[in-house]
């Protein structure tokens, strides 16, 4: 007996958004491997990247399952074009210096953790299960990046200037994470995902507390840079995918 597979479009989008955020940020952070300012930080960054790759496998695996067209997590990661990616613009921003990498991570973690906490009580058991696993990792990521943002923000003159510069450059991208579109609204109504407006308000309060302690000033009223969640990316993503996907594109099906 065969049942016709009908893709749950909103659910598919959610799995892609969660998975692509993790994948693209992991690809960015992974580029530090062997180049971080000190050995201990190098290993810590690699750990974060690997945590995110693990989460990517779960989210994109689920996305393939929801889609029902036989695409695996690998197919989705390595054989999609930029317009089909659903990550936020924040995570595709360049590594820059350590301050930029750290601030990008912190702004992402600040959203990622409460989002996963919300997803733990998803009406979809598969999503709740992934969130349950990922939430502990995200909690550690946030503790770590929060601690470093405070130390370096409230640090030397140079470290403070660099962190403030990174915050000015990256804060406009942070708002997209908690900016709901029609898909998010549908998912919230169906109790599959938390209400993004509520998450966004909590993230904002949290950022205010941390930046106060870090003696940093966020450009709170800056216009939100958005579009990634709907597939309209900055040119950065093209370069990331070129590096990440070239092998599977040049040698389809290559394995080791």
């Amino acid at each position: 007996m065969t049942t016709a597979v009908k893709t749950d479009a909103a659910l598919f989008e959610l799995a892609l958004r969660m998975g692509d955020n993790a994948l693209i940020l992991a690809q960015r952070v992974g580029a530090w491997c062997g180049h971080a300012p000190i050995l201990e930080e190098d290993i810590a960054l690699a750990n974060v990247a690997l945590d995110l790759i693990g989460q990517t496998k779960m989210w994109l695996g689920l996305a393939g399952e929801i889609e029902g067209k036989g695409r695996s997590a690998d197919d989705l990661a390595f054989l999609r074009d930029a317009r089909a990616f659903r990550n936020s613009l924040l995570v595709e921003q360049p590594n820059g210096d350590f301050a930029m990498t750290l601030m990008r991570q912190f702004l992402f973690d600040a959203f990622h953790h409460p989002m996963l906490v919300g997803l733990k009580s998803s009406a979809d058991a598969r999503i709740a299960e992934i969130a349950e696993k990922a939430e502990k990792e995200a909690r550690y990521h946030r503790e770590r990046s929060e601690d470093l943002v405070i130390r370096l923000g409230d640090g030397t003159e140079e470290s403070r200037a660099r962190m403030q510069g990174a915050l000015d450059a990256l804060y406009p991208f942070a708002g997209e994470l908690a900016l709901a579109d029609a898909i998010d609204a549908e998912l919230a109504t169906r109790k599959i995902a938390p209400d993004l407006a509520a998450i966004g308000a909590r993230v904002c309060d949290y950022l205010k507390t941390v930046f106060a302690e870090a003696t940093l000033n966020a450009p709170w009223d800056a216009a939100v840079r958005k579009g990634g969640k709907q597939g309209a990316h900055s040119e950065e993503l093209g370069y990331i995918l070129a590096e990440m996907q070239w092998l599977q594109r040049a040698y389809p099906g290559a394995k080791w």
């Binding site: 201990e40 810590a44 750990n47």
Partner: peptide, 11 residues
Amino acid sequence: AEMAIRHARDV
């Protein structure tokens, strides 16, 4: 000490 514990966790 706080960062030493974090690093120890990661390393």
